[in-house]
């Protein structure tokens, strides 16, 4: 019997899907359930963003929306365009993010200002203020360093939304629970990258695993000047920005 490559992929894909359905299918497929194939203790996820590569196309925002079913008008990731004017020695930023940049940006022609794009997403903080304030333990830092929400346990009190300094959380209008970037937890735990990183045409954002000694992040952090957003908040943010301007909030 000859199997074409396409057939093999098809079979492989199906196995993958089945495996991800979980333990219920273990006997049928013989594949290990995801919790065993993937070792949480061996990973510590984060992201690096290279400001100088971002072109403000909004691909990440659309990809995130498609991948995660983000409700309209809310954003797990978004892109901001900064136009920083120097007014008598003071850096005055003018920022916009039309509809989170889900359709990109209308072109700007202002040459008299410094302008650049800043992609934003949950910083998956280690000392996360949102996790700290959750009254019931419905949001948490997973053993592999991802800040997640248990939508079957969240009260919808919205204290976490107030506590996030970065505006990364919202109340899901239908589920009535707090919702946020999962760092595509369903993807990264099966060897894929996040939807935003997969679809970034310039490689401006890259998923990184700090516990993987071969991850390029180590070289990246060693050789570049990096910064996290609002470092004075001391949240232990794990999204590192290269060439981040001081005017970015």
């Amino acid at each position: 019997m000859e199997l074409s490559r396409r057939d093999l992929i098809t079979i492989g894909g199906k196995l993958l899907v089945l495996a991800s359905v979980g333990a219920a299918f273990e006997e049928i497929t013989g594949a290990a359930p995801p919790s065993e194939a993937y070792k949480m203790a061996e990973h510590w996820w984060g992201m690096i963003v290279d400001i100088d590569k971002c072109i403000g196309c909004g691909n990440c925002v659309r990809a995130c929306s498609n991948e995660n079913g983000v409700p309209k008008g809310y954003f797990r990731t978004w892109v901001e365009r900064y136009e920083v004017e120097n007014v008598d020695g003071r850096q005055e930023p003018h920022v916009e993010s039309p509809n989170g940049a889900i359709d990109g940006f209308p072109p700007s022609t202002r040459q008299d200002v410094k302008s650049f794009y800043v992609p934003k997403l949950c910083n998956h903080c280690v000392d996360s203020p949102c996790v700290q304030v959750c009254p019931v333990g419905a949001t948490f830092v997973s053993p592999d360093g991802v800040v997640l929400v248990d939508e079957n346990y969240c009260l919808g009190c919205r204290y976490c939304i107030q506590a996030c300094p970065y505006g990364c959380r919202y109340l899901h209008p239908e589920k009535r629970t707090a919702d946020k970037c999962t760092l595509c937890y369903h993807r990264i735990t099966q060897g894929l990258t996040t939807a935003c990183c997969e679809n970034c045409p310039t490689g401006a954002r890259q998923l990184v695993d700090f516990k993987n000694p071969k991850d390029p992040v180590h070289e990246f952090l060693r050789t570049n000047k990096v910064e996290v957003l609002k470092p004075y908040m001391a949240t232990g943010a794990k999204v590192y920005y290269k060439d981040l301007d001081g005017s970015v909030r």
Binding site: V136, A138, C157
Partner: peptide, 14 residues
Amino acid sequence: GHPERSMEMYLTPH
């Protein structure tokens, strides 16, 4: 958002 879950405050107070 979920008033029916408010008892969780007593079950697993953080």
